[in-house]
Design a binder for these strands. Structure first.
Length: 227
DNA sequence: ATCCCGAGGG
DNA sequence: CCCTCTGGAT
């Protein structure tokens, strides 16, 4: 108990297999109906729950329907519409300025390459990876968000801290066809069980292979008492 | 008090 | 590397 498999590859594979049984249909939980809406929803999701983003984008997407409309909207008007979202001033600015570039340089269409996406203000590797995967069906990297970062570290799959380094390691450890699923498995498990504050290790299907399990002392005590 | 599918700037 | 942006839920 409380150990992990002998290599990061084996650990990652076992984690994937077990979480797949637990969350067989996990996928993106942001609401969107086109690539522009996807891009905006992902920008808004930074340090904010998807549930809240979905709540606010319902009206937003009904009000603005093209990159040109976002580009021409007064920033204060956008910020007001986003006022219950984290960092709403920054995000209103990102959305408006990214939309300007999408109109002026990409014919009003959300670009489909990593370099073009990350040139947009407010779009880093994480956001670009999500847009590529779910908007363009291009899997160029592994989406490393706060859940993937927390779980891979707790599980002993990586010891890196920066999302960029964790992504590079995961790209080495995981088969490419599993990159997209791995992210959503981590997110689902991170929300339901392996939470940031009080992880519910007693209900965790990975408890016996998790070096961070807080049940170690209890388990040892129980096995001692059994004798 | 901490955390949420981060990114930009210093 | 550090800091800031930021409201709602717990």
């Amino acid at each position: 108990m409380g150990t992990r498999l002998d290599s990061p590859e084996a650990q990652a594979a076992e984690v994937t297999e077990r979480l797949f049984e637990t969350y067989p249909n996990t996928t993106i939980s942001l609401d969107f109906s086109n690539r522009l809406e996807l891009l905006i929803a992902v920008i808004l999701s930074a340090q904010c729950t998807d549930e809240r983003v979905n709540k606010e984008t319902k009206d937003l997407f009904a009000t603005y329907e093209s990159a040109a409309e976002y580009a021409n909207a007064p920033q204060e008007e956008l910020a007001e519409a986003l006022s219950s979202i984290t960092y709403y001033n920054n995000k209103a600015k990102y959305i408006r300025e990214a939309s300007e570039i999408i109109v002026s340089e990409h014919g009003g269409q959300v670009p489909d390459t990593m370099s073009e996406l990350t040139e947009l203000p407010g779009v880093g590797r994480k956001t670009a990876n999500v847009v590529l995967q779910h908007g363009h069906e291009v899997v160029e990297g592994v989406v490393v968000d706060t859940h993937v970062q927390r779980l891979t570290r707790r599980l002993g799959i990586t010891e890196a801290h920066s999302p960029q380094k964790i992504e590079r390691e995961l790209m080495e450890l995981l088969p490419r066809e599993g990159w997209q699923d791995f992210t959503h498995l981590c997110i689902s498990h991170g929300r339901e069980t392996c939470t940031a504050r009080n992880p519910d290790c007693s209900e965790c299907v990975l408890e016996d292979i998790c070096p961070s399990s807080k049940l170690d002392s209890e388990t040892d005590l129980a096995s001692n008492e059994a004798w």
